[in-house]
Design a protein around this nucleic acid. Structure first.
Lengths: 199, 199
DNA sequence: ACGATAACTGAACAGGTGTTCAGATCAAGG
DNA sequence: CCTTGATCTGAACACCTGTTCAGTTATCGT
């Protein structure tokens, strides 16, 4: 037999990406074979190549989609007060990454498995995201509401701190996502020498 | 030919571990074959098994050694003021991890490639390290010098923030290690609501 | 009802995987 | 100087790797 009953491109296509995301996050890109992905999708290996050109491109596409979605979802209004922009960024970052932990994991862990060209492109997207936080911090520093020695370092430190949440937070634990947000907001504010009461 | 001139266990043994550390960090455990390690060491594959029982144990040993060294090097004196203990922890963390970025990378990225038993053992060591920071934070909070809502979250946030340094810091860059230390000390102090002038 | 084509199978390709081991070779102790 | 044992080679084992493609089948527009 060949084509199985009820199979559609619109089902199989997204499923391949979903399965790949899950397996890559769990075992790592190099440790996951095309046959394992196919088995999980419920299809033979060859069928995968109706939806992806090759394994490397699959990985790159997953990363790029994640970064694109991240950048598209972030809304920053330069006209608002820096403290409000920061508050929005912190809460956005935690909320957006929560529930997408697989994609976050891949985007941070599998960079070394990208070809140099693909790496450069993903890295560019990441830099754009970092720059948006750095702009907020610089605006706050210039306005005199943040006390920070080096905006670049503060940016990297805060993003590392916030992204760390995805490695341990699971819904239904000791604390709710709202509480997590509030705590991290306080930590970030303190780190930047701002009062967390505002905004 | 078989045994080559000038080959010694005392040279080859450590070299295998050094090469493995480098390659695992660069390409990932699953992407590095025993043959690639052997080639880099300058030996045939079979020879590696004079020094390691198998690939999995090699990975585990590298991680365990790193964590053991980390725990052994950390000196914390519960009798000193919390602010001093925190200062020492922050500077120690940054200094210890700097120059060992390969081992740090492996210890954080390759956890999923450990067998369940090995994972549990490494995780226990990591928890012990986290607990030592948490103890400092709790001591400071009880003494009224730190203002922190949840000690566990503050611990995870700070460790994530500090460990992030290894992903971007390289000697000879814009800032020296001393400057990095000072900046992170300020950030950590602020996050915990303490004055960074002390200690 | 039927022809076109999207969707899939099954097999093959050339090469890579971790691990084992008999045999060759060199270093060192008596 | 010669034996002993550590050290390494080279080949083999059974299996897995990403990718391709001729052939088969289900679906859909007409």
């Amino acid at each position: 037999m060949a084509r199985t009953t009820g199979s559609h491109s619109q089902i199989t296509g997204p499923r391949v990406r979903a399965v790949a995301t899950e397996l890559f996050a769990q075992h790592g890109y190099a440790a996951v074979s095309m046959r394992k992905i196919a088995a999980e999708v419920g299809v033979q290996v060859g069928a995968l190549y109706n939806y992806i050109p090759d394994k490397q491109t699959l990985l790159f596409d997953l990363m790029q989609e994640h970064m694109d979605a991240l950048l598209a979802a972030l809304e920053d209004d330069p006209d608002r007060p820096p403290i409000e922009r920061l508050n929005h960024f912190v809460r956005f970052h935690i909320r957006f990454h929560h529930g997408r932990s697989d994609a976050v994991f891949i985007a941070y862990m599998e960079l070394r498995n990208l070809t140099p060209e693909n790496f450069a492109r993903v890295e560019q997207l990441r830099k754009r995201y970092e720059d948006s936080l750095q702009a907020i911090i610089e605006a706050g520093r210039d306005a005199g509401v943040f006390r920070v020695a080096d905006a670049k370092i503060a940016t990297l430190a805060i993003i590392a701190m916030l992204t760390g949440v995805t490695t341990w937070f699971r819904s239904g634990g000791r604390l709710s996502l709202d509480e997590i947000e509030a705590q991290y907001w306080q930590l970030v504010c303190g780190a930047l020498g701002a009062s967390s009461e505002a905004s």
